[in-house]
């Protein structure tokens, strides 16, 4: 059970993080972009837990708690903004919303 090396978990976390980052760059639907942000946060969580096990420390798991808290709040606020955006602009495309662009 503990025979799996920590480096494999770290590599898996890196792969998942990369997939999430590419998804944020590629996709234009706000909903999918938020999902990809969640993917990246989960990859970081996996890295935290793996390193915490390797170093015999519980700090990694404590940090995962706070990351989960931040992720939950981020999803709630982000989806509320998305609903509001959909009401105002009838779109979910990130490229369509460019009011702040100079």
């Amino acid at each position: 059970m503990s025979g799996v090396p920590t480096a494999w978990f770290l590599l898996l976390g890196a792969i998942l993080f990369t997939i999430g980052a590419v998804g944020v760059l590629v996709r234009r639907n706000v909903l999918i972009v938020l999902m990809c942000v969640e993917l990246m946060l989960n990859a970081v969580n996996l890295t935290f837990v793996a390193l915490g096990r390797e170093l015999n420390s519980l700090t990694g798991q404590v940090f995962v708690f706070f990351v989960i808290v931040v992720a939950a709040v981020e999803v709630a606020v982000g989806l509320a903004i998305l609903v509001e955006l959909n009401r105002l602009r009838q779109t979910a495309d990130v490229d369509e919303v460019s009011e702040l662009k100079g």
């Binding site: 799996v4 793996a50 915490g52 798991q61 708690f65 939950a72 709630a76 989806l79």
Partner: peptide, 24 residues
């Protein structure tokens, strides 16, 4: 669970698989 973090696994199922995905 494989990493011996049982409570984190439960929180992951409840918060992420439960709440966040349902919200999405």
């Amino acid at each position: 669970l494989l990493l011996n973090a049982q409570f984190i696994a439960m929180v992951q199922v409840i918060v992420y698989a439960g709440a966040v995905v349902v919200l999405f």
